[in-house]
Design a protein around this nucleic acid. Structure first.
Lengths: 209, 209
DNA sequence: CTCTAACATGAGACAGAGTATCAGGTTTGG
DNA sequence: CCAAACCTGATACTCTGTCTCATGTTAGAG
């Protein structure tokens, strides 16, 4: 019984959670399309649900809010940034480490076809130009601060009650935001990483070589 | 008709707008009290309106949203920061100028009785600990960015399509945010300006004497 | 003083977001 | 075949925010 039960659970869990993820992903695609076409505010949840072939109730079982339909995964990105940060060398400047730790969560996977890039720009523009989405985006990155703070405080050799770890993290994220904004404004004609480096270098501590 | 109408408008505007401001201020006080006592989400607009002696309809004539009842004036602060920024010497580092330009909008007017300070801490804590308020606070400071960007771009001698002006401004504001957070966490036992300087020095470009 | 026009208020209807509950249908495992 | 767990849809509800209409109030003109 132990074995069969485990096997059964693995199967169901595997299947169901896979199905959930698939439905989630498809619904997100549908929502992004609708938002880009008709605008975020003008699109109702009922419309999204209908276009995704589900009821309003079910939509709210997959997403906690309208904004979540677009930036739901974002909350998990904090862990990725933390992992990337922990792999940076200990003697590196924290500011540099943080900027590099953003690499895995940039909307463009470093190598990308022009088509994918165009889609990424449109999506970023949606985030940047819709106030409520931008605010939620900001809320999500606030959770990253809580995740990253201990490691940054350790590298700065200060307590978490010190304002500096939070300031460093928030500023790196602000640079990312500014870079994304410039990126969408120029329609992706300048590489995002270039803009991010420019922003980070303009703010971060200089004078090291 | 033009002149008499204008004169009439000026008079009524004087009295009426003064009345409006007074009602606005009182309602804000009431709302802050209720929010601090029962929490932001648990307080309904109907309750605020009742406590302020007005109807729900009237409340929405004074404030565009629930959050606006608390941080309504905030949008105007951008102009103050701009004015302070323009008075900084031309050859000063933009980062320093920006940090100093925040002085007139700090919640504590530099000289303040312990009683006023305690109230300011409680109010800041309300902003920091309520996610929707913090998000709206962020939205408001976004408008500051648009106001400050031209002057910062001028001082940086670069165009507004460059990501650096926006990054500088957003980072200074992020430092303010981090300082406010640390300030509320220690219950105001460390001066806000000290925390802000610590945050700004940790992030901003060093190496100038 | 009276009248008018601008303004402020309250009441009510409305749509949308988000929550909670209930009933019916499907899958999983025994 | 059966039972438990799960997913779904329908419904009702609260609250936010917008809009309209009717009423009351105030400032200024004649």
């Amino acid at each position: 019984m132990n074995q069969s039960a485990r096997r059964g659970q693995e199967q169901t869990e595997g299947i169901r959670s896979r199905a959930r993820r698939a439905v989630r992903a498809e619904t997100t695609e549908v929502a992004v399309d609708l938002f880009l076409r008709n605008g975020f505010d003008a699109t109702t949840i009922e419309e999204i649900a209908a276009a995704a072939g589900m009821s309003r109730s079910t939509f709210f079982r997959y997403f906690g809010s309208k904004e979540d339909a677009v930036l739901g995964e974002l909350a998990d990105y904090g862990e990725r940034v933390l992992a990337a940060l922990c792999e940076r060398p200990e003697d590196e400047q924290p500011w540099t480490s943080l900027r590099q730790a953003l690499e895995p969560v940039l909307p463009l996977p470093a190598d990308a076809s022009p088509e994918v890039a165009a889609q990424a720009v449109r999506r970023s523009r949606l985030f940047i130009e819709t106030p409520s989405l931008r605010a939620r985006h900001f809320e999500k990155t606030l959770t990253w601060q809580g995740i990253l703070r201990p490691e940054v405080a350790r590298r700065l050799r200060c307590g978490t009650e010190d304002p500096r770890p939070a300031a460093l993290i928030a500023c790196v994220l602000a640079c990312l935001d500014a870079a994304l904004e410039a990126w969408t404004r120029c329609d992706g004609s300048v590489p995002l990483r270039e803009l991010l480096d420019a922003a980070a270098d303009a703010v971060g501590p200089r004078g090291r070589g």
